[in-house]
Design a protein around this nucleic acid. Structure first.
Length: 570
RNA sequence: GCGCCUGUAGCUCAGGUGGAUAGAGCAAUGGCCUUCUAAGCCAUGUGUCAGGAGUUCGAGUCUCUUCAGGCGCGCCA
């Protein structure tokens, strides 16, 4: 229920419509003022009144009822209090009835969203630099789906370029199949590093790389088979990681798939007189749009990243007819996407406005930026292992008899990994630190999971089923406003915000809204948990159990959207 | 040099469309388990919101400017 709207409807002022009032109504800064507030300053100017007087008038005239039970003015604000009993019953009934659907909606029905995320490179081990795009993209994917959109998760594989010439050459020359079978991508990466070392000593290697690159493209069976082996090893390793992180994709077409479409792109650009030649290369001049030129073809005729991105964008529009196409890619590529969108605009693609670059900050290791080539790298696999180990040792210390210890440790450890990306605004840079990621206290995924475990434990003991809407209403029948404490009411109000939090998350594409929200709910629940008994609370027991269940449901849904699983016990 | 981003407590970060006294977590100190999981709760302290100017009844939030840091700027992706 939209209480702001309800309040706005009941305020009638000359020459000011409901929408304007609705826009001004805010959540009260402090719950001691009330639940909602209307600042009267701008209205007063328009009505030629003093804010204090106007606030007083509105407060006096406001028709109080079953929903809005108290209206008072202070210092130019009108403060509204909502009937606690009403708000509580509406909220708890909704959450308990909807269960794991709570927060979902159908606002996205009939709309398609493409999200390009993770987009790993073939033959490179998954390191913490890849984590942000993977986790942020996955959260957006899950939330869009939850709100009824048709979503296409695209892992735009980096499977094309001269680096594969280098790799295939190195593989053929130095690769030991047995070693690679056990060492996987890390061993393959060593070959890549070795190539670069050797190439510094022997310039002819670069020539070899180009030669092998060409061989792959021409379909040389031996080279292609090595390349396919590399690809298979990569997919096998990342699939395991994606499974752990609960990340899914629907489309795995990589850059190499779009090579064939490059000539058409060039032809189209040319026919629109957008291409100019410069030092032998074909470019789109963007000077009048205050940007450096967009390189379409190199002087040797080869395509570039941007060219293939144009082809891929057109393909996505044709195949999926998206209403929105998102690219979850680091902010280093701001200019690239500005250029891509501008070129598409110049090509009269009227859907370019539906494309958006979702930029995020970079991960560094104590001031050094990540570089596989220079060995400055932290592999995600190691981070996951460490987090799970730490979780395991904490469980050993606190709850050694826990059944499924390993599985619980897995959920907690992975929660920590995911949270490290998603508990701050995505644009912020991150300095990776094991100390930080291995901390399981305070504002962490573990804290939220622990809160769920507590709630779950109580519910098991309480042994009450709250599924039928009628039974919930019956159980809450005798509940009155005076039975609801301030803490409980703060929690209930917060729980009722969940659906709007999800919509906000998509408006801003900020998964951290969900994280912040989950932590706030957990804090309020823990406060409630300490303040009042739930199981032995006489006539309050059923209501408090219902509140406990509603909290568990909301937190579980929130964590699920982040890809974090909730252990029943921990 | 030009463009984009960031700057809030000792540290890490929150602060929907400008609104009432700027908030959490970590770290520190002290309390709370013979009642529901102490991975928790409660209490205590610190802020020139990077500096300056402007718009406004009202600015951490908007505009301009200075400073500091990050990223990017034609044949890599």
């Amino acid at each position: 229920m939209d209480f702001k709207k309800y309040i706005a409807q009941n305020i009638i002022l000359d020459g000011i419509n409901e929408e304007e009032i609705y826009a001004l109504v805010t959540v009260a800064a402090n719950s001691s003022f009330g639940d909602f507030a209307l600042p009267c300053f701008t209205l007063a100017v328009r009505l030629n009144e003093k804010p204090f007087t106007l606030a007083k008038q509105i407060a006096q005239r406001y028709p109080k009822d079953q929903i809005v039970c108290e209206v008072e003015d202070t210092k130019g604000y009108v403060n509204f209090k909502i009937n606690r009993e009403y708000w509580t019953k509406v909220t708890l009934t909704k959450i308990l009835t909807e269960g794991d659907e709570y927060g979902s909606s159908k606002i996205g029905e009939g709309k398609t969203i493409c999200i390009d995320y993770s987009s790993i490179n073939i033959a490179k081990p998954f390191h913490i630099g890849h984590l942000s795009t993977t986790v942020l993209g996955s959260c957006l994917y899950k939330i869009y789906k939850f709100l009824g959109y048709t979503v296409v998760g695209i892992n735009y594989l980096g499977d094309y370029g001269t680096q594969f010439g280098k790799l295939v050459y190195a593989f053929e020359k130095w690769g030991d199949p047995a070693l690679i079978a056990t060492g996987g991508l890390r061993t393959i990466n060593d070959l890549y590093v070795k190539f670069h070392k050797q190439a510094k000593l022997d310039a002819s290697l670069e020539e070899k790389a180009r030669e092998y690159s060409k061989k792959i493209e021409e379909g040389d069976s031996r080279c292609v088979s090595i390349y396919e082996t590399l690809k298979a090893i990569t997919l096998k390793e990342v699939t395991a990681i994606y499974k752990n992180l609960n990340v899914e994709f629907d489309d795995w077409l990589g850059e190499s798939h779009f090579i064939a479409k490059v000539p058409d792109v060039v032809k189209e650009l040319d026919s629109m007189h957008l291409l100019t030649e410069n030092d032998g290369a074909k470019i789109v001049d963007l000077a009048e749009h205050n940007m450096p030129p967009a390189l379409i073809l190199r002087s040797d005729g080869a395509s570039l990243y941007l060219t293939r991105d144009i082809a891929a964008a057109e393909y996505r529009k044709e195949k999926y007819n998206f209403d929105k196409s998102l690219y979850v890619v680091a902010y280093q590529q701001n200019l690239h996407f500005k250029q891509l969108f501008k070129v598409l605009e110049l090509m009269d693609k009227n859907w370019v406005g539906d494309m958006q670059h979702i930029a995020y900050g970079m991960v560094s290791i104590e001031g050094m930026s990540m570089s596989t080539r220079n060995g400055v790298v932290i592999y995600l696999e190691d981070v996951i292992t460490q987090c799970i180990c730490k979780a395991e040792s904490i469980i050993q210390a606190k709850n050694p008899d826990l059944p499924d210890l390993a599985e619980v440790a897995r959920k907690i450890g992975l929660g920590a990994v995911i949270f490290s990306v998603v508990n701050m605004n995505r644009i912020k840079d991150v300095v990776f630190s094991y100390d930080k990621i291995l901390n399981f206290e305070g504002e962490t995924a573990c804290y939220v999971q622990y809160t769920c475990a507590r709630a779950n434990s109580i519910l098991e003991k309480g042994n009450i089923t709250l599924q039928e809407k009628n039974s919930i209403i019956y159980l809450l029948k005798r509940l009155e406003s005076d039975d609801i404490s301030n803490t409980e009411f703060d929690l209930i109000k917060k729980l009722s915000e969940f659906p709007s939090i999800l919509q906000m998350t998509l408006e801003k594409h900020e998964p951290c809204f969900v994280t912040r929200y989950a932590i706030t709910v957990a804090q309020l629940f823990n406060k409630f948990y300490m303040e009042s008994p739930i199981l032995n609370a006489n006539s309050y027991t059923t209501y408090r159990l219902a509140l406990t269940q509603a909290t568990l449901t909301t937190l579980t849904n929130a964590l699920m959207l982040l890809g974090i699983e909730v252990p029943k016990k921990m």
